[in-house]
Every structure is written in C-alpha cells, then in structure tokens.
Design a binder for these strands. Structure first.
Ligand code: MN
Ligand code: MN
Ligand code: MN
Ligand code: MN
Lengths: 216, 216
DNA sequence: TTATAATTTTAGGCGAGTCTAAAAAAATTA
DNA sequence: TAATTTTTTTAGACTCGCCTAAAATTATAA
C-alpha cells in the first residue's frame, strides 16, 4: 500500500501536526534528518495519493485518509514498544529504534492479535496512548511539572523527551510512569523544582521539569 | 549492514544450495520471482561484498561469511514463525508471509530475547530446525513417507511443501508435526500410501507422501 | 518601502533495484 | 561436428528516494 518512506513521512507529519496546524517543509526535514528538497518531493507524492493537503510554500497537513494511515503506524509502533518492554524485558529507553522498524510490518491481523496478546494496552512504555484499530486515540490532558502550582500532586503519565539519556536519568531517579509526585516549590532563581516522592524530597532542573508530564 | 534485497537473495541462495552445489542464475530468479538479469546484477554486488563466490556463467555459492548471514536470516524467520504460532495462535499456513517481513528486523539483541522468551525452540512450526545465534543448525535426516518400507513407523517431523493448500490439507487430515504414523502399504498402481495413525487407517496420494517427512 | 535573510521549490544528478531487448556463451541435438 | 536451443550476461532505461546547487518566494529588518 504505502512504502516505508511514505509511512515515515506520514508519521512525522502526524507528530508535528500535534503542535502546529500547518507543518513546514523544514520541520519535516529536521524531524526525519533529511533535506528540504527531499521533503518537497515526497510531499507532492503524498498529495497525489490524497494523504496530505499541500499547496506550495503553504506547508502541509494530513487529510482524513492520511491521518488514518498515520494513526495506524503510531498504533503499531506503540504496541511493539509495549511488547518489547513487557514480554522481552527491554528498558524503556531501548525500544524506540526497534519499534521504528517493526511499525512497518504490514499485517493488520498480526497487530490485532498482538493487541489481544498484550491485553489491549492503552499506553506505551512512555505513557503515550495507543490508538485502537479504528484510529481512535485518547487525548489526555497532561501538564509538565514546570507548569503546575506548588503543593499540587499528580501521577507521572508521560514524557516530553524520548531520548535515551533523559529516559535513563528518569529511571535512575525512579521518576517513572505511574509514580505519584507532589510539587513542593519552584525556585525563582533558575526554576529548579523541589518534589516530594515516596516521602522523600528530590530536586530536578527546569529542563527535566519541562519534560515530565503529570496527570492531576 | 545488508539491504532487504541482499538478505532475500542470500536466503534464496542458501535454500537452493541445500540441493545443489552451484546455484544457477535462473534458479535464483525463479525462487525470488524476478528476472535473470536482475539476479546477475545482485550476484555481482554480493560477490563484491565477499558474500558469494561467483564467476560468470558458472553459477554461485555462498562464502562462509555469506552463509553466516543467511543462517541468521533463517534463524529470524523461523523464530518469528514460532512466535506467531505459539503466542499469537496463527495456523502454520498463515505465518510465512509475515515472517518474510519480520526476518529483516535487524536487532540481534531482539532476536536473542525472542529466542529466550520462546524457551529456545529448536524447530519452527513446519518442523524446520532453528539455527542458534552462532549459526549452528541441526541437520536431521528425515525421509519422505514415500521412501520408507512398509511396516515402518515414524514421527512426522517436517514437510517438503510449505504452500498454504498443502499445509491446510495436512491439518484437516491431522497429519501434523509430532504425529506417529505407520506405513502399511504402498499400492503399486499409483503409489498411493496406506497409513495407520491413531489406530485408524488413512490413504494419501504419492504427491502427499513425497512431502511428508518422518523421523524413524 | 526597500533591502536582506530565511524558507521553499526547481533543476539536475546519483545509487539501488528492477525491467526489456539484444548479444554472448554454454548446452543440447541432429 | 555443426546447428539449434537454452542460459546467462550486457546494454540501456525506468522508478524511488535521496542529494547539491541555484532560483523563486516569503518573511523580516532597516
Ligand atoms: Mn519507521
Ligand atoms: Mn513510545
Ligand atoms: Mn524476506
Ligand atoms: Mn517455516
């Protein structure tokens, strides 16, 4: 149906669309570590297939059909990540690159059986929601720790940075998905955040606080 | 390391090498449903990478390095097939095409963990041996039912034909891996074979008998 | 508003992998 | 052995996805 390259572009456009109405050529190029001219080529191909809306110099957005394809790739990616962590006992920072390949395995039946095998999980190891087979996805309102008022309590439910060093740091600090934390104080000087977790105090930097998302 | 196309060629050459010392261009083309000219191109590329021995018009054989790569792909293919049948409950005739894609997932750590997760299986759902991580493979001397003497008993341990209709037929007749059968008689007229299995008699055609492999 | 900078597109080219058609070599048959 | 058939290779072309360099367009600053 769609090539591997097309799938990667659609997923990138989907991701960027979460924070911008029209996605720019340069944004896509940066996301995929490719060149703007390559993006222009591919975007025209996707427009021909009616998967994106595109007018030159105007940026790009997914059509209904394109969004459906993208959500399916996201579903596959997150289900495989879940499998890798839950069944093969990989750490949460190790699974992304493997899932990046596995998300392109095309069988729908396979992914539905994997979904059932895993017990229809709703979130991947990083807290991101897993779309169902119709592309429905639970949008959850999460807030970065840096954006909540002191004495607020919440459960860590997602991360804003998926890089290995960040995830490893969080794991080392036991700041993992599901943990309840209370924001005690935000230091004015450099926005360091003082947290309470498991009855212990803990300081995290502004950058870290920006990338830990909690449900209140 | 190697492209998807290169991997498919190496696997095809490996398979054909089991029944021929030097594999011909046309054989490879038939196996991969491609054209002889494409095979010549690719074979020269594989020779440049020292994965095959090739002299024009002389056919091709795997080098030690090429065989190692091929065995690794076979390992991945068969482990994924095993997973699909044992964990996701696919039937043995449904798994080949999915495994054909999954075998190209490149992570060695992934496949070793999958191996452990499945309990280090030695055979895939079709009875074919699964190479270990060093490429060691247990060559088992199996005989087609058509080649054994009457009143011989053995255990069905492999198939010589992996096509869906054949596998479905065997399943319907309960002639599956692990079943013990006794060859009672081979009818001279058309080589129909009369079997005993589960204390019942059963007739199979010459073609079917040729493609059921037993360990005696 | 005009000049400058940044973004995006176009033009042209490259490698991978495939194809068809024609030429070369090997195998088979007469 | 000579003619014919089959197999294999070569020649040339195509699509896909990518690149660089240059041109066009849009955004920003003077
Ligand atoms: Mn991908
Ligand atoms: Mn994830
Ligand atoms: Mn394959
Ligand atoms: Mn198999």
């Amino acid at each position: 149906m769609n090539t591997l390259a097309e799938e990667n572009y659609l997923k990138a456009i989907y991701k960027l669309s979460l924070t911008a109405r029209n996605v720019s050529t340069n944004q896509i190029a940066a996301e995929l570590a490719t060149k703007a001219s390559s993006v222009t080529d591919m975007v025209r191909k996707l427009a021909d297939k009616a998967l994106v809306n595109y007018a030159r110099y105007q940026g790009v957005s997914l059509t209904k059909a394109g969004e459906k394809v993208a959500l399916n790739i996201v579903r596959r990616h997150r289900l495989w990540e879940h499998f890798l962590v839950e069944k093969l006992h990989f750490k949460w920072h190790e699974v992304h690159d493997m899932a990046e390949e596995m998300e392109h395995i095309s069988s729908t039946e396979l992914i539905n059986r994997l979904d059932a095998f895993m017990g229809h999980p709703t979130r991947d190891p990083h807290g991101d929601p897993i779309p169902d087979c119709d592309g429905n996805i639970k949008a959850t309102a999460l807030k970065p720790i840096s954006a909540v008022k002191p004495n607020t309590s919440g459960v860590i439910s997602g991360v804003g940075d998926h890089t290995t060093p960040f995830l490893q740091y969080l794991e080392q600090q036991k700041l993992t998905i599901g943990k309840r934390v209370t924001i005690k104080e935000i230091i004015g000087y450099d926005n360091t955040v003082i947290l309470e977790m498991d009855n212990k105090q803990l300081q995290i930097s502004r950058d870290v606080a920006n990338n830990i998302l909690i449900a209140i």
